[in-house]
Design a protein around this nucleic acid. Structure first.
Lengths: 209, 209
DNA sequence: CAGATTATTGATCACTTGATCAATAGCAGT
DNA sequence: ACTGCTATTGATCAAGTGATCAATAATCTG
């Protein structure tokens, strides 16, 4: 059980740009399935159906590939959530949609990616930069939702910058907790919802069920 | 640069129980300095000043050693914080002490241990169990502080179970964020303090400065 | 002091990681 | 059909991981 190389039909020869894209996408698939820590030279190569040397050929280094993979996954997630949330017109319903979307477990595969990222970020500077960037964008998106609600008069004026940080901290903390099966039975939505209702002058239960 | 074995004076022969304790402590030192992911057979051996085989001899397996190491660090941290917090008699001041203690950066070395733990917990069942246990104890400690405040009439009655989960989520989330240098300038204490003041009927600024 | 007990080690295994490089194979243009 | 360009690969490296085991050395016991 120790074949020095993968036996596999030789990969079809395609333009470099296209192959780079395939490898890039394979890395994302691996990250979503096995976590960011599972994005190894050989795992990505197998997923893409090419020799591991080809992955090394297209990626500057694995640490950069990991960082780029994280950036792609986090960026796409934000774009999707943003589009989904902004489609809701009523400000309060929009905020509720934001919370439910981020907590309903639909994105159960990207949470491990974030948790892995925080841990790996300490030894991977490229990844640390990527994390900071994505977090800034998430923060801006939450602020946008809050500001819209306040400007529409549906929420009490508040320090949206601070509240957005709070929301993200709670969501990331809860997601990390749930990853190790620490549910405590309490509904995460209700937990965050209550806090925001108080800070934004909303009636009890408006954000949670 | 490839000595097959560490050249080093042979470790003095001491009773097994004592040596086990030394290795156990060496693992904790390594974890605090290089993170839980740095707790490897050879790193612990070097730290303890023994051959790597001896670490393997005393530890059932590395995954168990990592789990035990986490348990020891998290447990000791909780005991210390608890003692420090319970020494404060005034309920509100006690809560404030709890928050400042958990956020003032004094325990900057154990935060990475927690963050590593969440990531590694997915592949290390022993570690996952340890995490859940330690979190349960932390939760109970926070509830204790909140209940005391409410019973003393210093805080508005509330669902302390839920609020404790919220506090832990925010703290862990914020700590994770700060680990990748994502400070956003905002004071974490003020952020959590504001939220709790609202939920516990405390005057603005009572918990934060 | 001789012998049994046990703590400690060196060597080694099988495996995984990222990375490099000469060699090969396929396509494009002439 | 030939030639040049380039995508792709196999082999291999050095480093690091956890783990095992016979051999050694120190202590204790009778």
């Amino acid at each position: 059980m120790s074949t020095p190389q993968d036996d596999r039909p030789r990969a079809e020869r395609i333009p470099a740009a296209l192959r780079a894209e395939q490898i890039y996408e394979a890395a994302q698939e691996v990250a979503l399935e096995r976590g960011l820590a599972g994005v190894t030279l050989r795992a990505v190569a197998e997923r893409a159906g090419v020799a591991s040397a080809l992955v090394a050929h297209y990626a500057p280094s694995m640490s950069e590939l990991v960082a780029d993979t994280f950036r792609a996954i986090a960026g796409r997630e934000l774009a999707e959530v943003r589009a989904h949330v902004l489609a809701v017109r009523d400000p309060v319903a929009r905020l509720r949609t934001l919370l439910t979307t981020m907590l309903d477990g639909t994105r159960n595969d990207v949470t491990p990616v974030w948790v892995d990222a925080w841990g790996l970020g300490r030894r991977n500077p490229d990844l640390a930069d990527a994390i900071a960037e994505e977090m800034t964008e998430w923060h801006a998106a939450v602020v946008e939702v809050l500001d819209a609600g306040i400007n529409a008069g549906a929420m009490t004026p508040a320090d949206t910058d601070l509240i957005a940080s709070q929301v993200l901290a709670m969501i990331d903390g809860l997601n990390a907790h749930e990853m190790v099966d620490y549910g405590r039975g309490a509904s995460s939505l209700r937990l965050i919802g209550r806090a925001l209702e108080l800070e934004l002058g909303l009636a009890d239960g408006t954000l949670g069920q």
